[in-house]
Computed example of a mutant assay.
Amino acid sequence: MKLPLLLVAYQCRFARDEQAMARHLIDDVPVGWEELGTDLLDGAPPELVTALTGGQEWPSSTLDNLVTPDGSPPARMTVTHEDAAEQDFQWGYVLRPDGIEVISPAQDATGPLVDWNTDPRTIHTNHPDHWTLRATGPVGTPVHTPLPRTGAAPSARRR
């Protein structure tokens, strides 16, 4: 799950600007993402980055080296609930003004709406029968502690 990275990106890198985050993740990418990396954690407190990554770093990478059967330029795919399982997606994330909606196409289930203020260190179960937030403390206690703002968010512009 990429949920912790997305929460930190919203809270720190994009200074709680859901539209700027959506532009960066969706509009500014020609085709799509191969991997979301730790660069989404830019501006986050170092202790939070370490807690989430174990000190590892990896870059985000886009799908740049795609080849289509007819040689035409690759186009962005539109993924729908009906065809997501066929495309082997494990998770989907919908950016909403009040949080991230988590979707599991493999299990044909819409999960929780995770509030943008949720502590990214919160443990999230990946089984729909147990879709409740569990804090790293007592089970059943969701954490909704906003992180402090640090640094300026980089600008995300439409091309």
Results as ranks from 00 to 15, higher is better:
17 D>K: 08
106 A>V: 03
39 D>F: 01
25 L>I: 00
10 Y>G: 11
96 R>Y: 07
53 T>H: 01
120 P>Q: 00
126 N>M: 08
62 T>F: 02
24 H>D: 12
106 A>G: 13
105 P>H: 14
50 T>L: 13
80 T>Q: 13
31 V>I: 08
107 Q>R: 14
86 E>Y: 10
103 I>P: 02
86 E>D: 11
110 T>K: 00
88 D>S: 08
132 T>R: 10
53 T>F: 02
30 P>D: 13
131 W>G: 03
34 E>R: 13
63 L>F: 00
103 I>C: 07
83 D>I: 11
77 M>V: 12
27 D>T: 14
83 D>N: 15
63 L>Y: 00
86 E>F: 15
95 L>E: 05
125 T>Q: 11
61 S>M: 12
28 D>E: 09
86 E>Q: 15
85 A>I: 10
118 T>I: 01
35 E>L: 10
29 V>P: 06
108 D>L: 07
116 W>I: 06
103 I>Y: 05
41 L>I: 09
87 Q>A: 09
110 T>L: 01
47 E>L: 04
100 I>Y: 01
69 P>M: 13
100 I>W: 03
115 D>F: 11
36 L>I: 07
121 R>D: 06
38 T>G: 01
44 A>S: 05
104 S>D: 13
46 P>R: 06
55 G>H: 02
10 Y>I: 12
90 Q>P: 00
95 L>Q: 08
6 L>V: 05
30 P>E: 14
46 P>T: 03
115 D>E: 13
117 N>T: 15
137 G>L: 02
24 H>G: 03
116 W>F: 10
127 H>C: 08
4 P>Y: 12
65 N>A: 13
138 P>Q: 15
5 L>Y: 13
131 W>S: 04
130 H>K: 11
93 Y>F: 13
26 I>L: 15
139 V>C: 11
21 M>A: 09
136 T>R: 12
13 R>P: 00
22 A>F: 08
133 L>Q: 14
84 A>L: 05
66 L>V: 02
102 V>Y: 05
16 R>H: 00
85 A>K: 14
20 A>Q: 13
98 D>S: 15
31 V>G: 04
46 P>Y: 04
60 S>L: 07
95 L>P: 01
65 N>Q: 12
59 P>A: 11
122 T>M: 09
